[in-house]
């Protein structure tokens, strides 16, 4: 029996209109995540990774934003054919979002128990008393000490790490098929970050949830993901299994990123910096978006945009670069 992937997105485009100008933030992104898998969407600010997450959740319903997509399926169900009410029922129960900033994601005037309980009351129709009991269970599950006592506390009474745990509790409360975590640990300290990543990973293993992890941190992506998709200027430029990509990057951008971060164990004499800055989404160059900063760029890169194509190595490895095969040949030679 062939189980459909938890999430399947084909050719997602998001365009914002501001001051009469069109700004294409996401320009043709495909995503597929299987059950129990973690896909890290890796990119710098402005690469379109967070916009992709919001578009998948259907949270870009605002004037000035246009979302276009050829195919969007969640566990085999067609999201594009659904009504707004049906989508609303899915959000929070079948697919959930963990935000970066827990303090602004939680309602400051409702107790934690009320906020987690709301999920059970709205989506499952439980009574207040039942919802409260389930909330305590969830707080326990994500490791909040004395859950039964703290369930009536308000967000400001918790520390940053605890608040992030509460967000994770809300995201997994209804055992969704998909959790989208948008920079879930960026605001946290290293020791607390390790706890939260461990928690998300444990819940993924125990509940078989698929996770889409949005991050800018190469370390974080390496720690928890099975597969990685690297975004640059609104497009995925490389994707594949995490080990393969980190061992032998086949896109110059991925290669340059890995060389630009310092290594704890072997401090190099000089970091290999990438010249220039990422392009603004409003004015991306024609041809390959990375060409102006790329040391391998040739004439064809400036004129023709490389498509995301499978590599000879197989294993679902795709890159969008005219020089990928020669990069791999060079590395193996």
């Amino acid at each position: 029996m062939n189980e459909p992937p938890v999430l399947e997105i084909r050719d997602l485009h998001v365009t914002f209109t501001a001051h009469g100008r069109e700004i294409p933030a996401v320009r043709g992104v495909d995503l597929t995540i299987e059950r129990g898998q973690t896909l890290a969407l890796l990119g710098e600010s402005g690469s379109g990774k967070s916009v992709t997450a919001k578009a998948v959740m259907g949270l870009l319903d605002q004037p000035g934003a246009r979302v276009r997509c050829e195919r969007a399926r969640l566990g085999g169900r067609d999201l594009l054919a659904m009504s707004e009410d049906q989508l609303r029922a899915l959000r929070g129960s079948e697919m959930t979002l963990v935000f970066q900033d827990a303090l602004s994601a939680l309602n400051p005037v409702l107790s934690i128990g009320d906020q987690i309980g709301e999920l059970y009351r709205v989506h499952r129709g439980l009574s207040r008393r039942q919802a409260r009991a389930r909330s305590i269970e969830m707080l326990d599950l994500v490791g909040i000490p004395a859950a039964a006592r703290r369930v009536d506390d308000y967000p400001h009474q918790f520390s940053g790490g605890m608040r992030q745990r509460i967000l994770v509790a809300m995201a997994v409360a209804l055992e969704p098929d998909l959790i989208i975590a948008d920079e879930p640990t960026t605001a946290l300290d290293v020791t607390v970050q390790a706890q939260i990543l461990e928690l998300i990973d444990r819940l993924r293993r125990d509940l078989g949830t698929a996770v889409l992890l949005i991050t800018h941190d190469l370390g974080v992506a390496a720690e928890v993901s099975d597969r990685v998709a690297v975004m640059y200027a609104g497009r995925i430029v490389e994707r594949g299994e995490v080990e393969a990509i980190y061992d032998l990057p086949a896109h110059p951008y991925t290669e340059a990123l890995l060389a630009a971060i310092p290594d704890l164990d072997t401090p190099a004499s000089e970091l290999r910096a990438i010249p220039g800055a990422p392009p603004s989404p409003a004015e991306t160059p024609p041809g390959c978006s990375f060409a102006p900063r790329c040391e391998r760029a040739s004439e064809v890169c400036v004129t023709t945009r490389p498509a995301l194509t499978p590599l000879r190595t197989g294993a679902g490895r795709h890159t969008a670069c005219h020089h990928s095969e020669e990069m791999l040949d060079g590395a193996l030679a």
Partner: peptide, 15 residues
């Protein structure tokens, strides 16, 4: 020790 141990490293093989 704890700080160093908790820092995420960009090496998937050390997962």
């Amino acid at each position: 020790m704890a700080l160093l141990s908790a820092a995420p490293v960009p090496k998937p093989r050390l997962k």
